[in-house]
């Protein structure tokens, strides 16, 4: 039993407090905006210069002056604003963004993250990832699967890939567990229904600690 990416997004969304300023990375983290609890308001920041980002533009109604960091046509909500790139990254670097939510190739026990480069012939591209992990108050990582396609752990003792930032990840949400990165290393606070601690440990490259009573994660797929 594993959580789907939508399930993970729902758990992430439920942990974001009302009124938070949140930057969602391109790809899986963007799913979080589909699961904002009704009574809460998150103000989404997109680093190309918008606060109050709304849903993707309807087909046929795209305005290509209004795009997100993934260069997709989106919309702006009431109370939103536009600003230039230096202001946008002042919000990030200056610690004004409450939570940055990103994907990753690897996260280390001390909070190091590698998510920008797999060395190879293609030119290295970083975008805003290094600014976000260094600047946001909280950095949360979403892993669609706890291990890679080859079964290698993504949560490791130390990253093998080039780093995006050092000691900056606060929490990991995977398809199997929610793990806080603490001064004493990774601390599991929630685990997939039916999963044993030793099985989670076997899929993890760093030594895990567990809170005495882990929350049980359940798939939402049977909900209407």
């Amino acid at each position: 039993m594993k959580l789907s990416s939508a399930d993970i997004a729902r758990y992430v969304a439920s942990d974001i407090s009302d009124g938070s300023y949140v930057n969602l990375g391109i790809g899986m983290p963007m799913l979080v905006s589909d699961y904002i609890p009704e009574e809460r308001e998150f103000i989404l920041h997109t680093e190309n210069g918008m606060l109050g980002m709304g849903p993707a533009a309807a087909e046929g109604e795209e305005d290509w002056d209004i795009v997100n960091a993934g260069k997709q046509a989106v919309s702006i909500l009431q109370g939103g604003s536009y600003f230039h790139h230096a202001d946008s990254f002042a919000m990030i670097r200056g610690g004004h963004i409450d939570i940055s939510i990103l994907g990753a190739y690897e996260v280390a026990a001390n909070g190091d993250i590698a998510n920008w480069l797999i060395p190879g012939p293609r030119p290295p591209a970083v975008g805003g990832a290094m600014d976000l992990v260094a600047g946001a108050k909280q950095v949360w990582v979403m892993l669609s699967s706890h291990v890679s396609k080859n079964g290698e752990p993504k949560v490791v003792e130390s990253c093998a890939l080039p780093l995006t930032g050092v000691g900056c990840v606060n929490r990991i949400y995977s398809d199997l567990a929610i793990i806080d990165i603490t001064a004493d290393g990774p601390l599991v606070t929630a685990m997939m229904e039916g999963l044993k601690r030793e099985d989670l440990q076997a899929k993890t490259g760093a030594i895990l600690n567990f809170v005495p009573k882990c929350e049980i994660l359940k798939s939402f797929k049977n909900e209407a």
Partner: peptide
């Protein structure tokens, strides 16, 4: 890094030759 790029340009326009940022440390 995108924010460092924006700030290097902003600094250029503002007559600031260099600055310090936590972005990219350790990378």
């Amino acid at each position: 890094p995108q924010g460092t790029l924006a700030e290097r340009i902003r600094a250029g326009g503002a007559g600031i030759p260099a600055f310090y940022t936590a972005t990219a440390f350790g990378t």
